[in-house]
Design a protein around this nucleic acid. Sequence first.
DNA 1: TCAAAAGTGTTGAGTTTACACCCATGC
DNA 2: GCATGGGTGTAAACTCAACACTTTTGA
Lengths: 232, 232
Amino acid sequence: MAIAKNQDIKLAVDAIVFGYNQNELQVLLVKQKFGEMANKWVLPGGFINNDEPLKDAVIRELNEEAGIRVDYLEQLYTYGDNVHRDPRGRVVSVAYYALVDPSQFNITAGSDAKDAKWFPLLKVPKTGYDHNKMIQYASTRLSDKIQYQPIGFELLADKFPFSDLENLYITILGKQIDRRNFRKKVLASEILIETNEFASNVVGRPGKLYQFDKSRYYELAKSGWQLDLKFL
Amino acid sequence: MAIAKNQDIKLAVDAIVFGYNQNELQVLLVKQKFGEMANKWVLPGGFINNDEPLKDAVIRELNEEAGIRVDYLEQLYTYGDNVHRDPRGRVVSVAYYALVDPSQFNITAGSDAKDAKWFPLLKVPKTGYDHNKMIQYASTRLSDKIQYQPIGFELLADKFPFSDLENLYITILGKQIDRRNFRKKVLASEILIETNEFASNVVGRPGKLYQFDKSRYYELAKSGWQLDLKFL
DNA sequence: TCAAAAGTGTTGAGTTTACACCCATGC
DNA sequence: GCATGGGTGTAAACTCAACACTTTTGA
């Protein structure tokens, strides 16, 4: 098997970046400035440099196109079965999904992008390429995964009231969850640290703030334990 | 974002093909004939043709290198963070894993391969490239996935005695499972069709043969139901 | 004092585990 | 008739779902 001299396939990365804000799950899109997709909303992404690890390419593109640095990044799927998915030629794209607390950033359109904006997941416009499909798949992965991995915390502030976590799960899973049962289950897992602080500037009684205990989680995970936050 | 003119990255696929035989999980490896990896055992795989969907490339390579046609094929992960994973230059590889009933095939070394052979998972030799890592990851995925997707059947004959299914789970999960509880759980899911046939040429009492009811499963899955075969 | 959201326990139903003996077949 | 593996039921422990009132705060 000689190294494929005649292969002419370009390799790109795309990122589905999720943010959570006020009971809404959001996706980051950028408006293309140039090319066939000019003025279309697409996922941030782009071609990989020859000596660049895939993950670095995603991080670079997110920074270049939207001025954002994500907390959690995971490979999702590689789109390469449809040979015409990019009108410019054969492009295979490795899609990643990322989670970020959007209150930490002001997103800014970069050099390649005319605009960069959060869209509520339910109001994502028709995008260029096969990016709607990617967003769809990433959403499914996210709602599956928060039920057995502690990734929801990446969407929240470092310290958060219990109700934020609960509303996040209600939003992502799209169903009501009993408050008492939710609290019981999460607390039983012992992956939260209770602080002595309380939410400020809120309507109603301020909730006590909690933190995700990452090192405790790794310890538990090492011995085979797994989060289990399934409901109903 | 112009189409990357100077990009020089090759794209390949690799397949981790699992077979199950007599209480042993096996992996298919081929011995390289040419190049830097000559005489090394590696996963079947190779470069993608310009106008070829990724999945087709895997199917083609499996046929060319080992004369095998798989029943179940799923994308696993794309290896492209280590830019030196292939000594010939920058190669990004999309890994797939596949499940097959090995009794259906006589594997045959193809044109690019000196040899093709099943290795018990626990006795896989040191392979070329990063293929041991791929096998490791695929094994983890397999044992996770058989607990909530009916993919185990792909490793068995069309009609199988209950004990085959049970031993498959014991082998893949690496733990003992109570026979009565296993049977109860599987039968409760109603995804098996009981035939009137019995195992033949066996020692001891022949077990009744069952079939996986694929259409029944799809029906159940459509309404949100999920297999749940976790134990202990 | 009112509105808004936080905090808190118990019970019944259902599920999961643990466990041992008899049955059918081939030699 | 013996060795081998197949087939079967039940009780106790545990887990999950359902459910409503009191507390704290700011306006």
